[in-house]
């Protein structure tokens, strides 16, 4: 299969690891994730000029603002992220939280805010979000306990809390843990999701 401007899909995967965005007006993408494009596209860093008007509503995150860039113009843009699996999420009146390092692009119609859990971004509203994952994304209904490294995000759920395994706590209290220099692995500490909603899990640790 040889792609050209016409045969490239509009907003769809080329394979598991690459995604083609049809840029019509604006799109917010993460720096360094563009691998190729056709057409007349301009890339502008946040906070340069009038683009702020576009993003002041949608990009409400001082901490991660620098990770993003606004693409304007008309063209087809291919995203890739270290050969990780890429998926697109069509959000409708949504409340979705995603690991910040996994966000590749989103439409300016969404509102992006920092989650209370460090390292995560929450997306509110209606629009498109593109994120990568290590292995295909698995959807799991809460309640469940998940290795923090394998989490991609969660939808319509309250922020999770940490659950420590009993053996681990016992080790810590008996000071054996500190002596042995215990490293926390997924078996010892998990994110505990309660309530009703969906958890997005990568098939492997980050």
């Amino acid at each position: 299969m040889i792609y050209n401007y016409e045969t490239l899909p509009d907003n769809d995967n080329l394979n598991n690891y690459s995604y083609c965005l049809n840029v019509v007006n604006q799109m917010i993408i993460t720096k360094g994730k563009m691998i190729a494009y056709y057409g007349m596209l301009r890339f502008e860093a946040i906070g340069v000029n009038l683009l702020d008007l576009i993003v002041q509503e949608s990009l409400n995150t001082p901490r991660y603002g620098n990770n993003f860039v606004v693409v304007t113009g008309q063209g087809k843009l291919v995203l890739g992220d270290r050969a990780c699996e890429i998926a697109s999420y069509d959000l409708e009146d949504a409340h979705l939280t995603v690991k910040a390092s996994r966000v590749l692009a989103f439409s300016p119609s969404l509102i992006c805010q920092e989650s209370t859990l460090a390292g995560y971004l929450t997306f509110l509203g209606t629009g498109q979000l593109i994120a990568s994952s290590n292995g295909p994304v698995v959807f799991l209904e809460a309640p469940a306990k998940v290795d923090p490294d394998a989490i991609l995000g969660w939808a319509d759920l309250p922020s999770p809390s940490y659950h420590y395994d009993y053996e681990y706590i016992k080790d810590v209290f008996s000071a054996v843990g500190s002596l042995a220099g215990l490293k926390k692995s997924g078996e010892e500490r998990q994110l505990n999701f309660t309530g009703k909603g969906t958890i997005l899990i990568q098939s492997s640790e980050q």
């Binding site: 290795d147 053996e167 998990q190």
Partner: peptide, 13 residues
């Protein structure tokens, strides 16, 4: 060790 991704139910490690 370190391969557990998630679980549901009552399980001890």
């Amino acid at each position: 060790r370190g391969s557990m991704i998630c679980y549901t139910g009552k399980i001890n490690f």
